[in-house]
Every structure is written in structure tokens, then in C-alpha cells.
Design a protein around this nucleic acid. Structure first.
Lengths: 273, 273
DNA sequence: GCGGTGGTTCGTGCATTCTGAACGGCGTCC
DNA sequence: GGACGCCGTTCAGAATGCACGAACCACCGC
């Protein structure tokens, strides 16, 4: 592990929408390093285009990051595979779908398609982060991490409460993740926002690793009556993306016992009547 | 300059849409460093989320970059200021406008709004790079760089020819950039693509530095008859963005002699009759 | 004009990175 | 199916590049 590079990455991570501009002294304080060191990091990152220097000697994120991000999006098999599936999902249900990955122990939303029946979900947004323990996608992603990793994450960020339904204890989380892993999907039952629910399912890559999660967000009053159909829909959609990514498994978790090797049923993405 | 960070940045820059996946050996060869060093760089970058490891031990860009890029876009005063102006420009002319910055000696397009009368411009795209010597925005950006910097860029990347009109010699470039600097705008007269022209103007930040360039791209047969109006429109639009960014100058270059301190005329963004 | 804040520079000592060789897993070609 | 070769990974010694604190300078507010 190259510590200098680690520090450079830490510096980049300081820049957030809340504080998009940093000075040398601030960075030094934030990372608990001497000013001269912070200066060297900032200067180098700026010279490489990852940061840009403002006229008054402070620093902001640089355009190279934008370019790299575009390259990432262009070449992402995940997005390519997920987008059409998400579009069909939105077309069928009129609800909002999310695609998210785990970054640094938190949920990072990488795609969001809003349906016409959907209510505006402000919290989630493309490029935005949220704690993982409270959302459907977050629980799915955590459930497929080693428990020690989950523990580290929780110890670092805590279990922030958004609603009365938010998971509050480590024990609760452990049980919930176990259930999610077993059944192959997760619900968010008004855990991040009162009145908002979702069903989420994991997306596997060719090696069988869970690399992302997909969800269908629904107002509570439409969620509870349709939970079963929603579950089938999102699980099936996620499976379709996984298969597109080269993942094939004899029996999917919730099919234990059956030996159905058939491709995903076309039924699942159809709208509720 | 922290060399380790420099190398890390070099590694990131290797990842392009053309080759979005790299192995240790490839990176080592590309940067002319030992395998073990390349391995350390890749591993660290992956641990920090700037890269991701594929199941078979190769590397791709990581989702952190996406997040950083979103933060950049969210907090970019340039984009916030430029977007409405570009929209009015497109609405008035029906042509395509570009917003670009200089990254590593090349033009990086950061925004592109396509008009309804416009022809599809494939070469330019948000997040895409092009050499600077041939496009309108490129010439504007180069014109406001020190000549030694321009020379370095040219020596590194050469003067690639796209059409018979592309600038081919350093001497030509020097003259053209001088003219662009004097007059405060640049034309691209079928220099990157036959049949395609554009007018481009610089955008200044509060400190008087040129940080971006804006252009209006027009098919050749509509360009030549309307050149004067086009020029006024793009120069005026760019000035409006500059002023939004906090740049005020007594006399703009092309106003030498006059002492018009009046705000930009509303006329300029109106459509040609 | 003075003090304070914040960005920048410099030189030295020490730890971190660099290097090259060896290991082991995987795919492939015979 | 076996052996070869490629490639990602690991390790230990050696020197180079980074960390550090003090000092400098420019700007701003008082």
C-alpha cells in the first residue's frame, strides 16, 4: 500500500458538494498532516489535473475527473446491461428504479430512472451517497460483504436513524442481513423516509460476486398490497442483468429445491393490474 | 512534486474508452516501471476506490471517480453560469453549442447542447477529448496560454491533420493564436471536419484567466453568410458567462477605443433572420 | 502600519518506496 | 492431458524520495 497515494485519495475524498473548495491549511488539519505535506499533495494533484487551483490559491476538483468518469460510464458493462432492464421496469411499473454500488462502505447511486407515477425522491440522486444500513440496495450490498467488513463500516459511520423504522442495533442488522442473504432480496419498509418503501435485489458479475444492487421504490400505500409482485419483478430484473454480465447459476437462492434452469420469466416486469 | 502521486495519476490516465481495462504487466510496460511498482500502484488505487479489480486480476476505473465527477459538476460555477446562456443560444439559433476546457494540452468538452437545426457532430461529445489546434474552442484556449506551453503541447502531440484546412505548421499556429488573442474570438473553418465551421470565444474567471471556451457550431453553408452575427452572438454569450463568474473589464479586447461599459446587448443571442 | 492568517519554500534525516528475482495460479498450445 | 509460458502477486535489501518543522511572503483586516 503506497501511503502517499492513499493520502492523495483521502485528499480527493475531502471534496464534497457541501465543501467543494479546500485550502492547504484546512486539508492539513483534516488529515492531521503538516501544512507542507498537504501543500505538496494539493500541488501535485493540481498539476495532474485531478484538482484545479483557484486564483486565490485554494483548490477544487479538476476536469480530469470528469473525463475519467465519462470513460468509466462509457465502458461500464454494468450500466450497459442494467439500463435497458431498468427502462422496462420503469415503463411497466411507473415507479422509480435505482442502481447502486458500494463505495467505501456507503451506497453510491449510479443510475436512477424516475417513473411517471413516482414521487420525487430527493435523498437519492445519481452520484449521491447514503449510509448502507437503511436502504434496500444498501442492505443487499452489505449482506454480501464479509461480516467483519460490515462491522468495520458500522463502527466507522454508526447507524444513523432516519425514521422510526431505521435499523438501530448491530444485532438487528446482523439478523436482517442474514435474512436478505438467504432470501436473495431486501425490503426497505419506510426505513429511510416515512411513506417510502422499496424492494431491492443483488446483481452478480461473472465470477459470482455481488457488484451492485437494483431497487424499485414505491410509496408505502402502493408497496404493501403489491409486495409479492414487486419482489418478483426486481429479483427477476436483477437476475436478467446478472446473466447479461455473464453470471449463470444452477439454482438461484429462492429457487432452492426446484431445479428450474429456465431463463427469467417475461411476466415479472409487467405492471400490476 | 510527489512522484508517487504523479505516477498514480499517470496510471489513471491510461484508462480510456479504447482500452478501459489494464493488467499489471501492461501498466508496467506503458509507464516503463517494474512490475512490482505497477502492482503497488494499481492495488493502492483499487483499495481507495479509484480503480476496481476485475475477478481475473485486471483493473478498471472505479466508482469513486463517478462520485467525484458528480461533485465537480454540482459545484462548478462555470457550468452553472454557462448552461442557461448556452440554452438561450441554442434556442435562438437552433445550432449546437459546446463548452470546453483545456486538460493536459487537449480540449475536453464538458457540455454540449444540440440544436434542432443542427447536424449531428460525432467527434465532439461530453467527456471526449480532441487536439486543441484544430477546433475553435481549442484555438481560443491555446491563445491564452503562454507560447512555451503551446510549444510543449505541440511537440508532444504533434499537429494532427483532419482536413485540408487543419493548421499544419507551428508558424501558422503562432500567427493564428496571435490573431485569436487580438480579436477575442476564433473560427474553425472546416478545420476538423469538412462542411463544419464554428465560432468560439473565451470565458474568463474573476481573476481574468481564461478557464474555458464556448462555441457555436454551424454547417459551412450557413456559417459563411452569417459569420458576423455568429461572432457577435458567441462573443457576447461568453462575455455574459464571464461576468456571471465575476469578471468585469473596462474595455473588452474588441472594444478598444470605445468606452462602452454597457452590459451585453440583448440583441446578440437572437436568431438570424 | 501592524498583526494575523494562509499559501509557499527549503534542507535534512529517516522511512518508504523502488527494484529485481522468485512464487504460484491459470490458460493454452502442443 | 501434460507441460509450457504468461501474468498477477510476494518478498527482502538498498537508496531515494518523502515527511517534517521552521522560516518566508503575500494578503487582509484592524
Amino acid at each position: 500500500m503506497l501511503q502517499t497515494v492513499q493520502k492523495a485519495a483521502q485528499v480527493l475524498r475531502l471534496f464534497t458538494p457541501r465543501q467543494p473548495e479546500w485550502g492547504v491549511t484546512e486539508v492539513a488539519a483534516a488529515l492531521a498532516i503538516p501544512k507542507s505535506g498537504a501543500h505538496a499533495l494539493l500541488r501535485t494533484l493540481a498539476a495532474e489535473g485531478l484538482l484545479q487551483r483557484t486564483p486565490n490559491g485554494r483548490y477544487r476538483l479538476g476536469w480530469s475527473l470528469f473525463e475519467l468518469s465519462q470513460t468509466l460510464l462509457d465502458s461500464s458493462a454494468l450500466l450497459r446491461a442494467a439500463r435497458p432492464v431498468m427502462e422496462r421496469l420503469v415503463a411497466g411499473w411507473g415507479e422509480t428504479t435505482h442502481l447502486a454500488v458500494l463505495v467505501d462502505g456507503q451506497v453510491l447511486y449510479v443510475e436512477k430512472l424516475q417513473g411517471d407515477r413516482a414521487l420525487e425522491i430527493v435523498l437519492s440522486g445519481v452520484g449521491k451517497r447514503l449510509p448502507a444500513h437503511c436502504s434496500g440496495v444498501g442492505k443487499v450490498l452489505l449482506a454480501h460483504q464479509p461480516w467483519e467488513t460490515v462491522l468495520q463500516i458500522v463502527q466507522r459511520t454508526g447507524l444513523v436513524s432516519f425514521t422510526p423504522n431505521t435499523i438501530r442495533t448491530v444485532e438487528q442488522l446482523r439478523e436482517e442481513l442474514e435474512r436478505v442473504r438467504q432470501q436473495g432480496f431486501a425490503y426497505d419498509q419506510e426505513e429511510v423516509m416515512v411513506g417510502l418503501c422499496c424492494a431491492a435485489a443483488p446483481i452478480y458479475d461473472e465470477s459470482g460476486q455481488v457488484i451492485a444492487a437494483m431497487s424499485l421504490s414505491v410509496p408505502a400505500y402502493r408497496f404493501y398490497p403489491n409486495r409479492q409482485r414487486l419482489t418478483t419483478a426486481i429479483v427477476d430484473a436483477a437476475r436478467r442483468v446478472s446473466e447479461e454480465l455473464g453470471y449463470y447459476q444452477e439454482a438461484w437462492p429462492w429457487e432452492n429445491g426446484k431445479q428450474s434452469r429456465s431463463r427469467s420469466s417475461e411476466l415479472a416486469t409487467s405492471a400490476p393490474t
